[in-house]
Amino acid sequence: MAGNVSTLVYVAKHRQRRSLKDPLWVRVLLIGAALLFVGLFLLVPMASVFAEGLKKGWGAYFAAFRDPDALAAIRLTLLTAGIAVPLNLVFGLAASWAIAKFEFRGKALLISLIELPFAVSPVVSGLVYVLLFGAQGWWGPYLPSGEHPWLGSWLNGQDIQVIFAVPGIVLATIFVTFPFVARELIPIMQVRGNDEEYAALTLGANGWQTFFRVTLPNVKWGLFYGVILCNARAMGEFGAVSVVSGHIRGLTNTMPLHVEILYNEYNIQAAFAVASLLTLLALVTLVLKNLVEWRHRRVLEAATASTTRQFIS
């Protein structure tokens, strides 16, 4: 064992074998081209977001967030993500569990359905909701508004509006972000197979115990990653939300929509200030993801090291 570990360390240290090395100019050229590309298309645009936002100083930067409409947009974005992400976590987990662990008729169809939001343009998704729930839409006329004697007493008199209101925004966001969790989990669960679940069952675990103590811990990193991606998209979604929102300031504007409005009003600095907040959100999720991965790796390494020590002593 000790020998194995030192071999591993050796391989890790000397992974760059001379036989695998390319001439210096090739390496410089390729690495340089890659760095240039990343810099031009990722780093510079991202930095410019912050630069533009801060162009008029920190005072103006923070003033952009004190605007009540901006605050409302931030609140709505958080609310939308707060509803859409947990729902999609549950839906995605259930769907991938069903697809990976069971055989049933229509499985291929279900997989295609889950991927549909990726294939459809977000604008189309938004339009579909308008078509369904809009005042002239299929179900729109049946939504409770005003007096409906055939509705229950609670709903009677309630004016539930979906399109150009918060429910529509949430629905559109759920639709657009639906595939993220499931797409992340299905391949992981399929690779793992069913043997561990079967083992848990033979040991007397019931369905819930098997799910929460075996299935879920096995996919927790994939799940976490899926949730991070889902959240990033939920907060950043523009197209579908734009169609159903109606752009009512202070009421149905999410952060991306607010950025657009500010930009169209030539309030460039404020637009970039709000945009920088969105960028920051993305950066935080990325850092969070890396932190989680790094910690996971460290736990594994610590376990290996301690057992190795045990073995040597």
Binding site: D195, Y198, L201, T202, L203, G204, A205, R213, V214, P217
Partner: peptide
């Protein structure tokens, strides 16, 4: 009788140990 109540110990070909 469901598998969990039969009182069998089952060892799988690829062990199926809980990896976590």
């Amino acid at each position: 009788v469901p598998v969990g109540r039969r009182g069998v110990g089952f060892v799988f070909q690829h062990y199926a140990l809980f990896r976590h």
